[in-house]
Design a protein around this nucleic acid. Structure first.
Length: 264
DNA sequence: GATGAGCGT
């Protein structure tokens, strides 16, 4: 019941294989000083399969699927995902290796870098064989743990490539949640609210890109304004993990949520 | 304690 069954068929918690690489453990103390062996800038964009790649979803026939669905795809098909919250050492090779033996066909990865410093901007793009593949990956891996164990995949549809917007057209009603304990994850936050508010669409704990640790606050999105408003009062002070939450209004960039523009 | 989110040749 209370068991963390991911919302949209998200990959189950990583059952780490036998041994793991020289990656930091779930709570890396050092930011990005660790340079994984495979993460050589300029290395061929082709990583050998790694044992620590994430587990595929509940399906183990992905290889066959990938082949079966390797249809040429309409050229305008959206099959690129945006990926964020990357640490600085997470380069193309690393990203490839994340999916190398998942059975999903990654046709292109790119990490966006600062032109001057060459440093990663913390996001990139993943292109897949077709839309179905991209969608599967999005569903399965978004929010699941990344191979280094320190953070979760942050995936979304890339927006530029084609007009089709992925987002449902329903508005979001978002609240700010502060005072979060260090161990609170997106999922934990989401479920804390979803237990009482069925329209909860998602939650996000804000991660510091440098330390890859939580900043102690986050956001919860509702599909219904009434629930948003109720949660603002009802959930204030309610325990999430070990700490009472502090709820506030969210300054929403996406003003669809009935949020007043800043200054009002 | 605090207001995310970043979309490329």
């Amino acid at each position: 019941m209370m068991q963390p069954a991911p919302p949209t068929g998200v990959a189950p918690p990583l059952q780490q294989q036998t041994q793991q690489p020289q990656y930091p453990h779930p709570h890396p103390q050092q930011p990005y000083m660790m340079m994984p062996p495979q993460a050589q800038p300029g290395a061929a964009v082709q990583a050998p399969p790694q044992m620590w790649a994430p587990q595929p979803p509940a399906q183990h026939h992905l290889l066959h699927q990938a082949q079966a669905q390797a249809q040429p795809t309409s050229a305008d098909e959206v099959r690129t995902l945006w990926i964020g919250d990357l640490q600085y050492w997470m380069d193309e090779t690393y990203l490839y290796s994340c999916f190398a033996h998942t059975g999903e066909q990654v046709t292109m990865v790119k990490v966006i870098r600062n032109k001057q410093t060459g440093q990663s901007e913390g996001y990139g793009f993943l292109e897949f064989a077709n839309r179905a593949t991209a969608e599967r990956v999005l569903q399965a891996y978004n929010g699941s743990i990344m191979p280094n164990g320190g953070q979760n995949f942050r995936l979304n549809w890339a927006t530029f490539s084609s007009g089709e917007r992925r987002s449902d057209d329903s508005p979001d009603y978002t609240i700010f949640v502060g005072d979060l304990a260090p161990d609170v994850t997106d999922y934990m936050l989401q479920e804390t609210f979803r237990a009482r508010y069925p329209t909860v669409k998602g939650a996000k704990v804000v991660i510091d890109r440098v330390t890859s640790r939580t900043k102690g606050y986050g956001f919860v999105r509702f599909g219904d304004e009434g629930e948003q408003l109720r949660a603002m009062t009802e959930m204030n002070g309610v325990l999430c993990s070990t700490r009472p939450m502090r709820i506030g209004p969210a300054t929403n960039k996406n003003t669809t949520g009935g949020q007043q523009p800043k200054g009002m």
